[in-house]
Amino acid sequence: MTSREILLWVALPYFTIATFTTGLWWRYRYDKFGWTTRSSQVYEVNILRVASPLFHLGMLAVVGGHVLGLLIPETWTHALGISEGTYHLVAVSLGALSGLGTLLGISLLVYRRRMTQSVFVATTKNDKLMYVFLLSTIVLGLATTLVGSGIVGDAYNYRETVSPWFRSILLFNPKPELMAASLPSFQIHAVAGMLLFMLWPFTRLVHAFSAPIMYFFRPYIVYRSRGDHASGSRKPRRGWNSFT
């Protein structure tokens, strides 16, 4: 193991996890007001109507694919009687489909952001930086699908290298040699992904973590007392006990 391998496949992942989690906590603690989708729908809707659902739903499928591919060990799917060939075919076809959908969606969104003056004016530097990392990670991810699928070059079974490495990080038993042995395209995509996750808490991407699941479980009409210290209200600072 070279120090470069340790740096890239042990240090960097843990640094990413640390930045991502503390960053999210910090942002939620100190910037709830800035925690929003900052939707630009009021400016322009014709492109957004198609592009935004395409990108977001595509992205959800991509995330689902990553969970399946990275978290579920190969032995489990084998135990279910799914052969490597079948798995590969399904993963590559569905992955490519959702990946292409996501790419098309985000391309349209970036085009809209640049070409619609009102949306462009509302784009911050932070947004632009975020788009660079998000777009490159998506493109690199699609490239790995292409390379690993066997369409270009030989088919590659990332579930023997990348996936165990990913799980080894989460289990605090890092095995950098596995990742070091994988294809360069996977390595680049992984690094880009880690950089994106480090940036994540400090951009508008945080809205992904406010997916309103609780909406299904609450009553329609919300009553709140003036005195409630509900979300967002500042608690009194710590200090001496009040004398009253």
Partner: peptide, 10 residues
């Protein structure tokens, strides 16, 4: 509208 809880879903 709780400005700290609004996420801009519109």
């Amino acid at each position: 509208v709780d400005q700290d809880a609004c996420r801009g879903w519109r």
